[in-house]
Simulated assay, not measured.
Amino acid sequence: MKQIALSEFDDEELFFLIKTQQSRTAYAEIYHRYWDILWRFALRHQINPDEAQDTLQDVFTALWQNRAKIEIKTKLSSFLYRATLNQILKKVDRQKVIATYIQRLGDKMKEQGLLIEEQIYEKELQSNLEEALREMPKKMRQVFEASRFEELSHEEIAQKLNISKETVKSQIKNALKIVRKHVNSLLFNFL
Protein backbone atom coordinates (compact mmCIF):
# COMPACT_ATOMS: atom_id res chain seq x y z
CA MET A 1 0.00 0.00 0.00
CA LYS A 2 1.26 3.42 -1.01
CA GLN A 3 1.74 5.98 1.74
CA ILE A 4 0.45 9.50 0.99
CA ALA A 5 2.88 12.40 1.51
CA LEU A 6 1.73 15.15 3.92
CA SER A 7 2.18 17.71 1.15
CA GLU A 8 -0.84 16.14 -0.54
CA PHE A 9 -3.10 16.75 2.50
CA ASP A 10 -5.19 19.89 2.59
CA ASP A 11 -4.86 22.35 5.48
CA GLU A 12 -7.87 21.11 7.38
CA GLU A 13 -6.68 17.50 7.26
CA LEU A 14 -3.25 18.56 8.49
CA PHE A 15 -4.74 20.54 11.35
CA PHE A 16 -6.92 17.56 12.25
CA LEU A 17 -3.73 15.47 12.56
CA ILE A 18 -2.08 18.18 14.66
CA LYS A 19 -5.11 18.44 16.93
CA THR A 20 -5.98 14.78 17.36
CA GLN A 21 -2.64 13.00 16.99
CA GLN A 22 -0.23 15.76 18.00
CA SER A 23 1.51 15.19 14.69
CA ARG A 24 4.73 17.19 14.60
CA THR A 25 5.23 16.35 10.93
CA ALA A 26 1.77 17.76 10.08
CA TYR A 27 2.64 20.84 12.15
CA ALA A 28 5.96 21.18 10.26
CA GLU A 29 4.09 20.94 6.95
CA ILE A 30 1.71 23.77 7.96
CA TYR A 31 4.68 25.77 9.25
CA HIS A 32 6.58 25.45 5.95
CA ARG A 33 3.46 25.94 3.87
CA TYR A 34 2.55 29.28 5.48
CA TRP A 35 5.75 30.75 6.92
CA ASP A 36 6.84 32.74 3.84
CA ILE A 37 3.35 33.98 2.99
CA LEU A 38 2.62 35.07 6.56
CA TRP A 39 6.09 36.59 6.95
CA ARG A 40 5.47 38.84 3.92
CA PHE A 41 2.04 39.69 5.33
CA ALA A 42 3.55 40.57 8.72
CA LEU A 43 6.34 42.53 7.07
CA ARG A 44 3.79 44.75 5.31
CA HIS A 45 2.39 45.68 8.72
CA GLN A 46 5.64 45.83 10.68
CA ILE A 47 8.66 47.75 9.48
CA ASN A 48 11.22 45.61 11.28
CA PRO A 49 11.80 42.10 9.80
CA ASP A 50 12.84 40.82 13.24
CA GLU A 51 9.48 41.92 14.67
CA ALA A 52 7.69 40.18 11.80
CA GLN A 53 9.65 37.00 12.53
CA ASP A 54 8.89 37.26 16.28
CA THR A 55 5.21 37.72 15.46
CA LEU A 56 5.15 34.54 13.37
CA GLN A 57 7.01 32.59 16.02
CA ASP A 58 4.31 33.66 18.50
CA VAL A 59 1.53 32.66 16.09
CA PHE A 60 2.96 29.21 15.34
CA THR A 61 3.87 28.60 18.98
CA ALA A 62 0.32 29.44 20.03
CA LEU A 63 -1.03 27.17 17.27
CA TRP A 64 0.93 24.24 18.67
CA GLN A 65 0.34 24.96 22.35
CA ASN A 66 -3.40 25.57 21.95
CA ARG A 67 -4.06 22.94 19.25
CA ALA A 68 -6.50 21.01 21.44
CA LYS A 69 -8.61 24.11 22.20
CA ILE A 70 -8.60 25.78 18.79
CA GLU A 71 -11.82 25.50 16.82
CA ILE A 72 -11.37 26.62 13.22
CA LYS A 73 -14.67 27.60 11.68
CA THR A 74 -13.18 28.91 8.42
CA LYS A 75 -10.13 27.86 6.43
CA LEU A 76 -6.86 27.33 8.29
CA SER A 77 -5.23 29.98 6.07
CA SER A 78 -7.84 32.56 7.18
CA PHE A 79 -7.31 31.56 10.79
CA LEU A 80 -3.52 31.99 10.46
CA TYR A 81 -3.83 35.39 8.74
CA ARG A 82 -6.23 36.55 11.47
CA ALA A 83 -3.96 35.22 14.22
CA THR A 84 -0.99 37.00 12.65
CA LEU A 85 -2.90 40.27 12.35
CA ASN A 86 -4.11 40.00 15.94
CA GLN A 87 -0.56 39.41 17.12
CA ILE A 88 0.66 42.44 15.15
CA LEU A 89 -2.08 44.61 16.64
CA LYS A 90 -1.26 43.36 20.12
CA LYS A 91 2.40 44.32 19.64
CA VAL A 92 1.48 47.71 18.17
CA ASP A 93 -0.83 48.39 21.11
CA ARG A 94 1.88 47.31 23.54
CA GLN A 95 4.39 49.59 21.80
CA LYS A 96 1.93 52.50 21.99
CA VAL A 97 1.35 51.85 25.68
CA ILE A 98 5.09 51.68 26.30
CA ALA A 99 5.69 54.85 24.28
CA THR A 100 2.93 56.66 26.17
CA TYR A 101 4.31 55.44 29.48
CA ILE A 102 7.84 56.54 28.58
CA GLN A 103 6.53 59.95 27.47
CA ARG A 104 4.57 60.40 30.70
CA LEU A 105 7.50 59.21 32.77
CA GLY A 106 9.78 61.65 30.96
CA ASP A 107 7.29 64.48 31.50
CA LYS A 108 6.97 63.56 35.17
CA MET A 109 10.74 63.42 35.61
CA LYS A 110 11.12 66.74 33.84
CA GLU A 111 8.35 68.21 36.01
CA GLN A 112 9.94 66.83 39.17
CA GLY A 113 13.31 68.11 38.03
CA LEU A 114 11.84 71.55 37.45
CA LEU A 115 10.11 71.49 40.83
CA ILE A 116 13.36 70.59 42.53
CA GLU A 117 15.17 73.23 40.51
CA GLU A 118 12.50 75.79 41.41
CA GLN A 119 12.80 74.91 45.09
CA ILE A 120 16.57 75.29 44.94
CA TYR A 121 16.19 78.57 43.09
CA GLU A 122 13.61 79.80 45.61
CA LYS A 123 15.90 78.97 48.54
CA GLU A 124 18.80 80.70 46.82
CA LEU A 125 16.60 83.70 46.09
CA GLN A 126 15.46 83.83 49.73
CA SER A 127 19.06 83.59 50.89
CA ASN A 128 20.17 86.35 48.50
CA LEU A 129 17.30 88.57 49.58
CA GLU A 130 18.20 88.07 53.25
CA GLU A 131 21.81 88.93 52.42
CA ALA A 132 20.66 92.08 50.58
CA LEU A 133 18.53 93.07 53.60
CA ARG A 134 21.51 92.59 55.95
CA GLU A 135 23.59 94.84 53.69
CA MET A 136 21.05 97.70 53.91
CA PRO A 137 21.27 100.37 56.59
CA LYS A 138 18.57 99.97 59.28
CA LYS A 139 16.30 102.81 58.07
CA MET A 140 16.53 101.68 54.40
CA ARG A 141 15.64 98.10 55.42
CA GLN A 142 12.62 99.36 57.41
CA VAL A 143 11.38 101.37 54.42
CA PHE A 144 11.92 98.49 52.00
CA GLU A 145 10.22 95.92 54.27
CA ALA A 146 7.25 98.25 54.83
CA SER A 147 6.94 98.72 51.06
CA ARG A 148 7.45 95.17 49.88
CA PHE A 149 6.39 92.94 52.77
CA GLU A 150 3.70 95.03 54.45
CA GLU A 151 2.61 96.50 51.10
CA LEU A 152 2.27 100.02 52.50
CA SER A 153 2.12 103.03 50.19
CA HIS A 154 4.88 105.64 50.19
CA GLU A 155 2.64 108.00 52.14
CA GLU A 156 1.82 105.35 54.77
CA ILE A 157 5.51 104.53 55.20
CA ALA A 158 6.37 108.22 55.55
CA GLN A 159 3.77 108.62 58.29
CA LYS A 160 4.72 105.38 60.07
CA LEU A 161 8.47 106.15 60.14
CA ASN A 162 8.04 109.93 60.45
CA ILE A 163 10.03 110.72 57.28
CA SER A 164 9.21 112.53 54.03
CA LYS A 165 7.69 110.82 50.97
CA GLU A 166 10.80 111.81 48.99
CA THR A 167 13.01 110.03 51.53
CA VAL A 168 10.80 106.92 51.19
CA LYS A 169 11.16 106.99 47.38
CA SER A 170 14.92 107.49 47.62
CA GLN A 171 15.35 104.70 50.22
CA ILE A 172 13.28 102.25 48.12
CA LYS A 173 15.27 103.16 44.98
CA ASN A 174 18.56 102.51 46.76
CA ALA A 175 17.27 99.35 48.40
CA LEU A 176 16.18 97.98 45.00
CA LYS A 177 19.69 98.56 43.65
CA ILE A 178 21.09 96.39 46.44
CA VAL A 179 18.44 93.71 45.91
CA ARG A 180 19.02 93.67 42.14
CA LYS A 181 22.74 93.26 42.66
CA HIS A 182 22.14 90.10 44.74
CA VAL A 183 19.33 88.76 42.54
CA ASN A 184 21.17 89.42 39.27
CA SER A 185 24.15 87.38 40.48
CA LEU A 186 21.72 84.53 41.23
CA LEU A 187 20.14 84.76 37.77
CA PHE A 188 23.57 84.77 36.16
CA ASN A 189 24.53 81.62 38.13
CA PHE A 190 21.37 79.76 37.07
CA LEU A 191 21.78 80.60 33.39
Rank of each mutant, 00 (worst) to 15 (best):
I98V: 14
D50F: 09
R40W: 07
E131K: 10
L56N: 09
H154E: 12
I30R: 07
N174M: 05
E150L: 02
I116S: 10
K169S: 14
D93V: 10
A158R: 05
T84V: 00
F190Q: 14
L38K: 03
V168N: 01
E145S: 07
T25C: 03
V183C: 09
T61Q: 05
L105M: 10
I47T: 09
K2W: 03
V183L: 11
W64H: 10
F16I: 06
E150H: 02
Q53H: 13
S77M: 04
S185K: 10
E12Q: 13
F149C: 00
K160W: 02
N86H: 09
L14Y: 02
F188M: 09
K181N: 15
A42L: 03
R104K: 15
E118W: 02
Q119E: 15
K123N: 13
Q53M: 03
Q119A: 12
I72A: 02
S164R: 09
R94H: 14
F188E: 15
A99M: 07
L80W: 05
Q142P: 01
S153W: 04
E8F: 08
Q171A: 08
F9D: 00
K110G: 08
A52M: 01
E71I: 06
D10R: 02
D36G: 13
F188C: 01
D11M: 01
M140L: 07
R180W: 12
E156D: 15
K169A: 13
K138V: 12
K181T: 12
Y34R: 09
K173R: 11
Q119S: 08
V179D: 03
F15L: 06
L125N: 08
F190M: 11
N184H: 08
S170T: 13
Q159P: 03
E118L: 08
I172T: 08
K160N: 01
R67N: 06
I102W: 04
L161Y: 11
H32M: 09
I47C: 04
L129Q: 11
L76Q: 02
Q95R: 11
K173L: 05
S170L: 09
R44P: 00
K110H: 12
V168H: 00
Q65G: 02
D10T: 02
E156G: 04
Y27P: 05
A175Y: 01
D50H: 11
K139N: 07
Y81E: 03
Q159T: 11
T61K: 04
N184A: 11
E131A: 09
T74C: 02
E111Q: 13
I30Y: 03
Y27I: 07
E124K: 07
V143Q: 01
I4M: 11
K181L: 14
Q3T: 10
H32R: 15
V97E: 13
I116G: 06
L43Y: 02
A68V: 09
S164A: 12
I18H: 04
H182A: 10
D11K: 01
K73A: 02
F190C: 03
S7V: 05
D36Q: 14
W39D: 04
D11S: 13
T20E: 15
A83T: 04
I72D: 03
K108P: 01
S23E: 06
K169L: 14
E51H: 10
E122R: 12
K123T: 08
Q22E: 15
E118A: 09
N86G: 10
K91S: 13
T25I: 09
R180F: 14
N66Q: 14
H32K: 15
F41S: 02
I47P: 04
E12M: 13
E8Y: 06
L6F: 13
